[in-house]
Structures are given as C-alpha cells and as structure tokens.
Amino acid sequence: MTSIGVVTFPGSLDDRDAQRAIRLAGATPIALWHGEHDLRGVDAIVLPGGFSYGDYLRCGAIASFSPIMSEVIDAAAKGMPVLGICNGFQMLAEAHLLAGGLIRNAHGSFICRDQKLRVENTSTAWTNEFDDGAEITIPLKNGEGGFIADAETIARLEGEGQVAFRYLEVNPNGSINDIAGVTNERGNVVGLMPHPEHATEEGFGPDTALAMRNGTDGLKFFTSAIRSLVSA
C-alpha cells in the first residue's frame, strides 16, 4: 500500500488531520519527526500546517533547516511528491523548493474562513484528479498568507503554468494575482495556504450549507498523489 509521511515539527497543529486525510484517501500515513534524517521508506511527504518554532524569524524559516528537510529536499529532487500546507508551504518557499514567499496578510489580521479556489493546474502529483478549472471550497486559516514574488518570477509562474490554485470571489490576504498555491516545474512539489486536510469527509466543514456538496473537495489532493504514484 502507498505510504505518505507527515512531518511533525515543534508547533505543528495539523499533522494528525493530515494523517487522517491520507488514511481516508486509501494510503498509509507514516509519522515523521523533524529532528531525524529517516524518511522511513515513504512514497510521498506532507509538510503540515501550524506554527513551527513559533513562527520566529519568518514563518517556516527555522523549520526549513530541520534535519529532515535535507532528506525532503533530496527526495523532491528525485521526483517524490511533496505537499506543503499553510506553514508547510512557507517551509517549501524558505527551502527554495518553491518560488516566492509568504508575508503578513495585507489587512494585518489572522483569517479563518471557507475559501473558494480555482484549480489552475491539473497535471501535478497533487491535483491530477481535479477537472481543469474546477472550483472547490476548503478552509483557510493564516496570518501570513500573502504570496509575493518579483515581477520576473510572477511572469514565469504564470507563463509556465506553475500557479496551481487561485483565490476566487475574495482575495483573503493580498496575494499577488490571487495566487493561493504554486507548483515546481516538475509538478511533484506543491504548496498552498488553504487546508485540504480539513475538507475530506461529507458533513464536516466547510460550513453546513456547503458541507454535503464540497465537504470532500480536499480529499482529491491525497487521492491524486496515490494515483500519480501508482501510475509511476
């Protein structure tokens, strides 16, 4: 059976939720510890949300130098699927596995809401089960979620199809071009600020009115990874 590792850092909050999402998708979740160099033979990796190291210096900055991140970087370079969710996205940016960076929300406040997204790239290891242009709703919760990059990087991301997700209806944090998530050129590394692991079961979040229709939108992230690994 496909195994997907979830790395726990000091301050991780959503590692157990990610493990549950992986189990619901049909894979085996494997707990990984930030202070070790052992990936335990996993087939893919999730860097979960939270406040690693209390968000000191910059969100994800200290975590990007954790011992296990050297293994994650090597594995990603060899093609292993890696997903960074919220704080995990910040780590991937700090580790230069993904372009750009994440800064304080433009309105200066923490935000928690059900967020509509459009799937812009369905050829990645984490999005291949979505339809092109699919509109999904998954929870968003962050204080430093504003995606930034220089003009040249933004043009490259847009031109080469590396924008994976875009905010719809409202830009909750001031991200350039409404960018909610990006992928690397190869398509095996994806990061996004919203939390797919919180939208994996019917009847549970997003809000009650949307739950039966959109409650499992997040599950396709994890079934996509399984599909890409089986296909490979």
Rank of each mutant, 00 (worst) to 15 (best):
D150V: 10
R213F: 02
N188C: 14
V42Q: 00
A76M: 07
F110V: 10
H37Y: 06
T216H: 04
G161R: 02
E135M: 14
C112E: 11
T200K: 03
L157N: 06
G35C: 05
F130L: 03
R58Q: 15
G145H: 06
D74P: 07
I62W: 01
L83D: 02
R186K: 15
R227Y: 08
I111N: 05
R118L: 09
A151F: 01
L117G: 00
S12Q: 03
T8E: 08
G191N: 09
I138P: 05
D207K: 06
D14C: 11
A18P: 01
L32V: 00
F110H: 08
R104C: 05
A151H: 11
L13G: 12
Q90K: 01
N188G: 14
P172Q: 13
A99S: 12
I22V: 08
T127M: 13
T8H: 08
V189W: 00
N171E: 11
R20K: 14
V163P: 05
R58W: 11
T216N: 02
I148M: 08
G88C: 05
D131P: 04
L140K: 04
T28P: 02
L39M: 07
V46R: 00
E197K: 00
M91D: 14
L98H: 07
N171M: 14
N177Q: 12
S3R: 14
D132I: 14
L98F: 11
L219W: 00
G100S: 09
G26Q: 12
G101L: 07
N177Y: 14
R20P: 00
L13R: 15
R58S: 12
G50R: 06
I4H: 03
S52H: 13
S70G: 13
Q19S: 12
V6E: 07
